[in-house]
Design a protein around this nucleic acid. Structure first.
Length: 861
RNA sequence: GCCCGGGUGGCGAAACUGGUAGACGCAACGGACUUAAAAUCCGUUGGCCGGCAACGGCCGUGCCGGUUCGAGUCCGGCCCCGGGCACCA
């Protein structure tokens, strides 16, 4: 038995032992209760970074803990293998996306294996494989049959120089990342999934997810954005302009209406008004993100058109405004400058009138001429004829009723949520299985021709989709008339791939069906773990996709993830330079020398290789694209997998953001070495005798109580609280206590034996390799990671005396030791008797005595 | 701009339901061991003040205000940092 802690040897031995112990078919049903522990699948960007290590270590800790608690645990792994970075790498290095992706997968798989995660690799999937994406296509066709998938135009970023569609990430300050050209908005036909039909179910379903963090549910609910209001019609020469409002009570205060630049009314007016046409053209500049639209300068122009107020028949001017979004409601709003801040600012800027129609409940109405900001709160209706004196709620109801009678309004519920556009004008993705025939129109690819296989040998060059230039792919016979037809060359959003991969793990070997009965054994996922950045899109799309599959009878469940743990991001500094054309080059924090101001904040840096300045971009998520990822490999080689895993769990609680620093890794390593040494010395003294609880002296009972308190704490921290950092801290405290004990009596050694065995088991989920070795050293048979989780002995936990805190007027003034079962009166008496307390109470009158049993007494004088 | 989080010693953090602020670890400093260094072990470590000492006092959880016997924790306002904003994944 070696005394040296040798992580390399320990890791190799443990991993060999685990491989040797794998028995039977992992897919075979087990009598134990199932537990599906799933981590979000990684994008194979090249190398693992610390965010991955954090994610998969959390998953592995939960997996191993549940296994030791007797569950039949499934922990699979796969690759989110389609996407833009593979195309970017191809453009940069000339390597085909397929080869780049497969090489990355091979490398990252080895990295994951080196960390000793208990992953069932027999179920591994990669979303770029035809036997996976075939089922994307198959389900898309089912959605098309049911009208869940449909075609309409959508807005994209267009680079006029490269003649290509850009992702939002490729638009930097309104310009194309490669060309520097001003980006334009362009309308193109795309396929959409009708997620809005599901809005109410997706919203209501959140109430049935007690295992999800409140913040994620709040974000999803806000994203779906249900609003109840009134759709109001404003008649005009060409028909009726529809707007939606949640504040119908302010209708009499409407002084103009505003429409989006893309609104049909704007287009119609622009046809006869060159100035307006130029303004609308101006609005097309820039990217399509909501952040960009919401922060741009608010601009508008009158169309010269007018609509009629539905209640007063007054003529209201129609304006085009860039702050009105075509994608929300009807793409038009009634503007009430007195009671909406955005309308207020717009009206002041363009000299549009203001009409006050709501006053505060307990104050006078604001005066239009002197208002400094809009009055947006609820209140009492004024200046509104028959509706005066009503409270906001009543006024909305009364005005809605009046509009309904004139058939110019009806109550409606609208959602902020938009349908999911899945078409991407990109190569490295799942082909959309549609054939365009000049005679028969757009036709689905027949099921028997699936999958539509993506050619893997194309080379993207940055100008458009290479698929569209690939004759063998594009040219196809029409499935209906047999004539020459053209394949759809758009591919699917990669969120489609990740919306159901977790189901495929249950039956990855089935080439006849998307999923089979096994999916209902393993799913829903008991514990899902992934970054908080996926709180909305991925998780919402997955919930939607699951409902579609449920409604098609493919799965029994509607919610895919029972419990969710959203891991905080691992951040690192970001450094970059802007190129002449507008592109951005990122530099690794390792390659720069930061410049700090007097407060120690980083203000910039210089690049080590050329000594010239680079800009500082603050802290941000570790990612390959920002060049700020830290590869765990060097740390694993220096300290071993267990140290890296343990440090990750100890540094910070899982949901919290982690600003990366290596400081502290050394501490985790020292702890493992100290544990190793302590166990070595303990076993070197021979076999410990059997523990006789009744024969222990007070000191031994005290140490044993700490052993069992630690079992209770660690079980709660891992099983319920997900506070792995405090679980590790508790084990550290226990080790400190054990090593302080120098009791060489037989029962003293027996207590230490129990303590060390307990530590080996409590730490096994986090540092499994070391714990296997310790378990053997302690003379135990079998695998620590397969042993039963320890249970706290309630008898050992009993305390005879406890310490009570005494406060005077809420300030700590003393502590008293009392019997654990002391009653209220005994506590009060002991508290008042304490010497320092008496100094502060003196001869003052005790007004009140607050007793918190087991904790404190507060004396109010 | 909008939605969601976070801010506690020199640093990562703990304090779970309103009840002892700073557990555990890092770094630093002092000591032991050593020819020396590394490693290891022991001790000190929020700030200020009093005391030979035991110990005691005052201040302190981003900023301003409030509720409460008692606030890191609850409420109102603000500042800063991070995540998301529908084509990065």
């Amino acid at each position: 038995m070696t005394m040296e802690f040798d992580p390399k040897a320990i890791t190799a031995a443990a991993q060999a032992a685990w491989r040797a112990s794998e028995t039977g078919d992992p897919a075979s049903p087990s009598s134990a209760q199932k537990y599906y522990c799933l981590c979000m699948l990684p994008y194979p960007s090249g190398r693992l970074h610390m965010g991955h290590v954090r994610n998969y270590t959390i998953g592995d800790v939960i997996t191993r803990y549940q296994r030791m608690n007797g569950r039949d645990v499934l922990q699979p792994m796969g690759w989110d293998a389609f996407g833009l970075p593979a195309e970017n790498a191809a453009i940069k290095n000339g390597v085909p996306p397929a080869k780049w992706t497969h090489d990355n997968i091979a490398y990252m798989r080895r990295q994951l294996q080196s960390l000793g995660f208990a992953i069932d690799w027999s179920r591994e999937i990669a979303t770029c494989e035809p036997d996976y994406y075939k089922w994307n296509q198959w389900l898309f066709l089912r959605m098309l049959e049911r009208g869940i998938a449909y075609q309409k135009t959508g807005t994209v970023n267009w680079d006029p120089v490269d003649q290509t569609v850009l992702a939002n990430e490729q638009v930097i300050d309104g310009r194309g990342w490669r060309t520097g050209a001003l980006v334009e908005k362009r309308e193109i036909p795309m396929y959409y999934l009708r997620i809005t039909e599901c809005a109410e179910r997706l919203l209501a379903g959140l109430d049935g997810l007690p295992g999800w963090p409140e913040r994620v549910k709040t974000m999803q609910a806000n994203w779906i954005g249900r609003s109840e209001g009134v759709e109001i019609g404003f008649p005009h020469d060409g028909g009726v302009l529809k707007v939606f409002t949640t504040r119908a009570d302010t209708l009499l205060g409407a002084t103009y209406v505003a429409v989006a630049a893309e609104h049909p009314l704007a287009t119609a007016a622009a046809a006869r008004n060159p100035e307006l046409a130029a303004f609308i053209e101006e609005c097309k500049k820039g990217g399509v993100t909501e952040a960009e639209l919401a922060t741009q300068e608010k601009k508008g122009m009158a169309t010269g058109l007018h609509v009629q107020h539905p209640l007063t028949d007054e003529k209201l001017p129609v304006w085009v405004a860039n702050y009105v979004l075509m994608s929300y409601g009807e793409g038009a709003v009634m503007a009430v400058p007195a009671h909406d801040q955005r309308d207020f600012e717009f009206a002041r800027k363009h000299d549009l009138p203001l009409k006050v129609v709501v006053k505060p409940r307990d104050a006078d109405a604001p005066v239009a001429e002197t208002m400094q900001e809009a009055f947006t709160e609820h209140g009492i209706t004024v200046n509104s004829g028959a509706f005066d004196g009503l409270d906001t709620g009543q006024a909305i109801a009364a005005i809605a009723a009046a509009l309904e009678q004139k058939q110019l309004g009806e109550k409606r519920t609208v959602y902020r949520l938009r349908d999911w556009g899945i078409s991407r004008q990109r190569y490295w993705g799942c082909p959309i299985p549609i054939i365009h025939c000049p005679d028969c129109g757009d036709l689905p690819v027949p099921d028997e021709d699936l999958p539509v296989v993506l050619p893997e040998d194309l080379a993207p060059d940055g100008s458009g989709n290479p698929l569209a230039k690939c004759a063998e792919f594009v040219n196809v016979a029409c499935p209906k008339c047999g004539g020459a037809a053209r394949r759809e060359t758009d591919t699917m959003d990669t969120f489609v791939d990740s919306s159901w991969y977790y189901m495929r793990y249950a039956c990855a070997d089935n080439d006849k069906a998307m999923v089979d009965a096994r999916v209902n054994r393993w799913l829903p996922v008991d514990q899902y773990i992934g970054g908080i950045e996926h709180a909305i899109l991925h998780l919402l799309y997955s919930r939607f996709w699951t409902r579609v599959m449920h409604d098609l009878g493919l799965v029994d469940f509607e919610e895919p993830f029972t419990r969710l743990l959203t891991q905080g991001m691992v951040l690192n500094h970001i450094y970059f330079r802007k190129g002449a054309a507008g592109g951005i080059t990122y530099y690794s924090p390792d390659d720069v020398t930061p410049i700090q101001n007097a407060q120690g904040q980083i203000t910039g840096a210089t690049l080590k290789s050329d000594g010239r300045p680079v800009e500082y971009g603050g802290m941000g998520t570790m990612s390959k694209s920002k060049a700020n990822g830290v590869d765990p490999q060097a740390l694993v080689e220096k300290y071993g997998a267990d140290t890296v895993r343990l440090f990750m769990m100890f540094a910070v609680p899982p949901e919290q953001t982690l600003e990366w620093s290596e400081a502290g890794v050394e501490g985790a390593h020292r702890f493992l070495k100290r544990l190793w040494k302590a166990v070595s010395e303990h076993v070197a003294a021979g076999i410990a005798p059997e523990l006789k609880a009744a024969a222990l002296n007070e000191v031994q009972r005290e140490l044993r109580r700490q052993v069992h308190e630690t079992i209770a704490k660690v079980s709660d921290d891992i099983g319920r609280r997900y506070m792995f950092n405090t679980a590790v801290a508790a084990v550290m405290e226990l080790l400190n206590a054990v090593t302080r004990s120098e009791d060489a009596t037989p029962q003293g050694r027996a207590v230490r034996q129990e303590a060390f065995e307990t530590i080996a088991l409590l730490l096994a989920p986090m540092a499994p390799h070391s714990c296997e070795a310790l378990w053997r050293m302690l003379g135990r048979e079998g695998l620590a990671t397969a042993a039963a989780w320890p249970q706290a002995d309630t008898v050992a936990l009993v305390r005879e005396r406890i310490e009570i805190v005494v406060q005077v007027n809420g300030k700590l003034r003393g502590r008293v030791a009392v019997p654990a079962d002391a009653g209220r009166e005994a506590l009060e008496k002991a508290a008042l008797a304490e010497q320092n307390v008496q100094q502060f109470v003196g001869d003052k009158t005790v007004r009140k005595l607050i007793v918190v049993p087991g904790k404190l007494v507060n004396i109010v004088v």
